[in-house]
Structure formats: C-alpha cells, structure tokens
Amino acid sequence: MNSMFAFVILDLLSLKQYRKVFFFMPLLAVLMSWYMKADSIAAILCLLCSMIACTYLFSIQEKNLLDTLYCTLSLKRSNIVIARYLSVFCIEMIAYIVGLLLITILHAFSIGIDSFRGDFIALNVGLFAISFFVSFQIPFFFRLGYQKAALIAYIPFFLPMLLISATLTLPFDIFEFVRGITNGFILYGLPVIAGIGCLGLSCMISCRLYRQKNL
C-alpha cells in the first residue's frame, strides 16, 4: 500500500513541468464563466483540464522511458496499474473540488444565471463523463503506449461530444428522470459512484494488459 502511495507521488511529480498551466486553468475558467454568464463552464473546464493531466501522465511515461524506472522500483506490475488509477482518481478529485469551489464562489457573487443546484448536477455529471472517457482511454495507453493509442483513445471523446452537443440536455434529463422516480437527493452522488465504477472496471482490464506487456 505504501509503495502505491509513493507511486502516486511519483506520478504527480512527473507533471511538475506543467504545474503553471494547471494553476492558470481555474483563472481562465472563471473568466470564461463570467464572459458566458454560466457558472457550470468553470466546473466543466476544470474537469477537462484534469482529463488532459491524466493523458499527460502517459505521454510523459512514454517519452521518458518511465516503464523502465517503474520496473526498478519495488512494485509489482499490477500495483503499478492500480497506483496509476489512484493518481487519475486523485487528479479528478482535485479538479472536482476546485470546480466545486469555483461554482460556490461564482454563485456568491451571482455572476451566472443558472441555479446552484443545476451547476452542481452539471459538475457531477461532468465528473462521470470524464471518468468514463479516461476509463476507455487508459487500457489503450497501457497496451499500445501513448503515441500509438492517442488516435484510438480520443474517439470516444469526440463521438459522444458530438452526440451530447446535439442533445445537450439529455444527460440532465436522464438524471432528472432517475431522480424523479427515486425521489432522493442522494442521487447527486450517483454519477460520481458510476464514474468510480468505470475506473474500477477499466483498472481490471489494464492490469491484465500491462502484466503481459514487453517493456
């Protein structure tokens, strides 16, 4: 367990060169929200940023031959994979918390026109969407490496984006429908739990793929 946390620290350190970009993002998010008069934009931008950070982990890993480094450390192959998913989860959670802070602050200054509840739902559904995308991408990254996988791995990003932009309110409608029939506010957490489920499933697949890989 200890070594997995050590690996998460190693992962976050590998993003060090991009830290300025990631600090700059929330600022940009606020500006865009303010300009477009929609607080949820801030939250969504933070989540998108976290997704980019997750793919950077793999790009940096490939560019710097970090697979070799991992194999010299006292970690089993499957633990490397699980620890990488922990890193991804950490990054998503940071984005979620920053997103939540942003919409809270923006609402305090009542910049947006949506209700806080609507923005919060957008944040949660957004988190699910991001978890779903990275869950699809990561096994490809583990199996093929970043360069080769990049093309395939972005397909689900563009396809559903097209679909979603065509039917922008669909996730919200589904969400409201489910909330309506179960009649409970606990359901705000449902997208988050479903997102974690996707990551878990994806992790199991990646473990299998990475264990066999020649590095």
Binding site: S14, I60, N64, T68, L69, T72
Partner: peptide, 13 residues
C-alpha cells in the same frame, strides 16, 4: 540497484 543503458527519469526533474 539498477543502471540501464539509457536514462529513465523525467527530463524536467
């Protein structure tokens, strides 16, 4: 302790 024939740390470290 391992040393391989090409470096394997992040360039920016």
């Amino acid at each position: 302790g391992v040393v391989m024939d090409s470096p394997y740390y992040v360039d920016a470290w």
